[in-house]
Nucleic acid binder design. Structure first.
Length: 247
DNA sequence: AATCTGAACAACCGCCATCTT
DNA sequence: TAAGATGGCGGTTGTTCAGAT
């Protein structure tokens, strides 16, 4: 299905917004509200793509935005929400009034990632980095020697499979956990350290319990009478939010 | 003072979901 | 039901700036 571009790129400005453009956009939205983003630029007299206007408004011009540094509490909340939701920045932003998804995403990538790494926590899995000591080292020095024996291109092998297996407490027969065969990799000369994908418990589908109150079902702050079990207003049902969303 | 480097952040791009016709 | 239009999201890139050398 072909798609037309969201705007005529030949006649639109790109790059940083000027004060005048900001003023025009704000004035237009104050007067007419957030309507159709596609037609807004023309109506507002802006030579911008509708998407660009939307982004500018949502991320920087909206009056309810909270600017300034993130607090320690916000940091921790973002970390907790990320551990539950993953890179669902818009959902995370929904839990932080005045913050935008873009802002949180940038903040995550520049600050929190490093903060977690310095604590020895994997920012992707939220687990201790050393938890999976199952790293497998691939040595290309060994490959060089192997290549000398196997003239059909460069070869690399799992280095010290028995030691690695012992380190991770697996069966010491490498064939049981690795492929045990040299891997062909032409023209490479790298020392790599790879880990198998994290084997997390598959998330069990969660029934949408009938007892979920309206506020919780919408992901809104809990009402006074709410008795749903929740963490930060996130019901357990949201833990399986991915599977629900992907259906 | 000049240059380099990395951090921070604004903005863009492409894809997907949903709505409309 | 299919196709097109639009909005929204997440990943990535480009630019700016501060600190180090």
């Amino acid at each position: 299905m072909g798609r037309s571009p969201c705007c005529e790129k030949a006649h639109t400005n790109k790059g940083a917004w000027t004060k005048e453009e900001d003023d025009r956009l704000v004035a237009y939205i104050k007067a007419h509200g957030e309507g159709c983003w596609r037609s807004l630029p023309k109506a507002a007299g802006l030579l911008r793509c509708g998407k660009s206007c939307r982004l500018r408004w949502i991320n920087y011009l909206r009056p309810d935005l909270k600017r300034g540094n993130f607090t320690e509490d916000e940091d921790e909340l973002i970390i907790k929400l990320h551990s539950l939701l993953g890179n669902k920045w818009s959902l995370i932003a929904g839990r932080l009034p005045g913050r935008t998804d873009n802002e949180i995403k940038n903040y995550w990538n520049t600050h929190i990632r490093r903060k977690l790494l310095s604590r020895g926590i994997d920012p992707v899995t939220h687990r201790p980095i050393n938890e999976h000591a199952s790293n497998i080292t691939i040595s290309f020095e060994a490959a060089a020697a192997a290549a000398a024996r196997d003239e059909k291109g460069a070869v690399f092998r799992l280095e010290e499979p028995k030691a690695a297996a012992a380190a991770i407490g697996r069966d010491q027969n490498p064939a049981d956990w690795g492929h045990g065969k040299p891997l062909k990799c032409p023209d490479l000369n790298l020392d790599l350290c790879i880990s198998p994908p994290c084997q997390e418990e598959p998330l069990k589908p969660v029934k949408r319990e009938a007892g979920l109150c309206f506020s919780c079902s919408l992901g809104l702050p809990k009402s006074a009478e709410c008795k749903c079990s929740s963490f930060l207003g996130l019901r357990t049902a949201m833990l399986d939010f991915r599977s629900l969303e992907m259906k």
